[in-house]
Design a protein around this nucleic acid. Structure first.
Length: 458
DNA sequence: GTTAGGG
DNA sequence: CCCTAAC
């Protein structure tokens, strides 16, 4: 394998970029993978070309680090380097390789489109931007807690060194092999890099998350969350980018969770939608990025009721355009959201995001949401610290439910309640972190502290 | 400005 | 996801 690929290496690294665009995608990918493999095999001689290919600036101090990070990225992203390494060490990587290549060929079409559609330089920039936080991550990378709960389905088949990056953090439910801490960290880094590669390349590589890929036999088929986790966010991403009005239709069918918010596109909604399509051009300033702005405001909210709801006159006032009326209502309710409405549309949490969140909590503990956001979710502007906290809250809830249900052997009911299951390992880690960093209940404590002041003795 | 808690 | 109160 290695020798076969050697001749390809004569191609200059600087050509890789061009090949990705000019050539058909399959050879381009092969060459790319070859480069990666080469990097893996002879890292000391390839540092320069890594920088050249990916436009890394000279400001990088730890090139060695970068090379490793890249190996992570490519191992996860395209997996071919993985096969190469495995074959080098002569330990059953062939099966994996074949699977990977099959998957790769399946992905070629989509990847090709993406590459063609993207300006490569900008993609590079994005890549650079995204690649930074894993470095930072590794700088403060001491994971204070026991991470040995993470299991590796195939750790024995990998060599040390790069193997950490290759051995995707285990999802296998069958074999529980303890992963060394360093390996795990590498895997997380690589995974995050890969996650951002998804973003950089349009998040449509259709290559599933690395975790899922390794655990494909166990997770994808058994629990079937891949579709709901990875595809739906993509759909919403694409739709929101295109500002397709009809996104409602797509979103409606996406998950059960969303149905709560999006159900009942009532007649009034349809009316307002049509009105908005006319008036929206006048009032572009208001909510330029709203896909379907009217629903949440004009319909009874799911959450806490607004303080003032004088809706009758509003409803009868058909002269107002939708956006105008919305603004009117805002004035009335005096909630006065900022000019650019902060309300976002739901964006499904991908498994990679969840893992990033979990890792962030492992580093910072619970409560430092802004730190976690700045460090790990810097590139995803749609995740606010509050979102992270909410997600963690939900994760705690679902993981505890998972625990209980497992005790009662009610897996079926479990999947029913938690429509979007998490891999067992992630759930384990969440529970582990939950014990280490208990979710704060400060106010209750204060409340209890206040009670004793009411001593009957005094 | 950030976080906790409730919806 | 959104809102509000508390810090």
């Amino acid at each position: 394998m290695r020798m076969d690929r050697k001749p390809h290496l004569t191609k200059k690294p600087a050509d890789v970029k061009c090949q990705r665009v000019d050539d058909s995608m399959v050879p381009g990918l092969e060459d790319e993978a070859t480069e990666v493999e080469h990097l893996l095999v002879e890292p000391q001689s390839e540092h320069v070309s890594v920088d050249g290919v990916f436009c890394f600036g000279k400001e990088s101090i730890e090139k060695h680090f970068k090379t490793e990070d890249f190996s992570c990225a490519f191992d996860f992203g395209w997996k071919i380097g993985c096969g190469g390494l495995d074959s080098i060490h002569g330990r059953g990587g062939d099966d994996l390789k074949l699977e990977v290549l099959d998957g790769l060929l399946d992905e070629v079409d989509e990847v090709d489109d993406i590459h063609a559609a993207h300006d490569l330089s900008s993609a590079c920039d994005d890549f650079l931007f995204d690649i930074k936080f894993p470095e930072k991550f590794s700088e403060l990378d001491h994971v204070p807690h026991d991470i040995s709960n993470l299991h590796n389905s195939s750790s024995e088949s990998h060599s040390p060194g790069f193997s950490g990056s290759i051995s995707v953090e285990g999802i296998s439910e069958s074999s529980f092999v303890i992963v060394q801490e360093s390996n795990y960290k590498n895997s997380v880094l690589g995974e995050m890099v890969n996650y951002d590669l998804h973003h950089t390349f349009g998040s449509k590589c259709s290559c599933p998350d690395p975790v899922m890929e390794t655990g494909r036999h166990s997770i994808e088929q058994d629990q079937g969350f891949v579709d709901s986790d990875d595809e739906k966010p993509l759909v919403s991403f694409i739709l929101s980018n295109k500002k397709v009005k009809s996104s409602v239709e797509v979103r409606k069918g996406s998950t059960h969770l969303r149905q709560k918010r999006l159900r009942k596109p009532t007649r009034r909604y349809i009316e307002e939608l049509s009105r908005n399509s006319i008036a929206g051009k006048k009032c572009l300033k208001v909510e330029p990025q709203e896909d379907f702005p009217q629903v949440p405001e004009s319909q009874p909210r799911r959450g806490r009721p607004r303080k003032i709801v004088p809706k009758l006159e509003f409803e009868s006032d058909c002269e107002l355009s939708a956006s105008e009326s919305e603004e009117e209502e805002r004035k009335r309710t005096k909630t006065s959201r900022t000019a650019c409405d902060r309300r976002k549309h739901q964006r499904m949490w991908t498994l990679a995001e969840v893992i990033k969140l979990v890792e962030g909590i492992a580093h910072y503990g619970v409560g430092r949401w802004t730190d976690i956001k700045k460090l790990l979710f810097a590139s995803s502007s749609y995740r606010t610290p509050v979102d992270l906290r909410d997600k963690w809250r939900n994760l705690l809830r679902s993981s505890s439910a998972h625990e209980q249900n497992m005790g009662e052997l009610q897996v079926e009911a479990n999947t029913k309640h938690n429509a979007r299951m998490l891999p067992k390992t992630v759930v384990c880690r969440i529970r582990e972190l939950a014990t280490i960093h208990p979710y704060p209940k400060v106010r209750n404590l204060n409340f209890h502290l206040l009670i004793p002041t009411f001593h009957p003795n005094n």
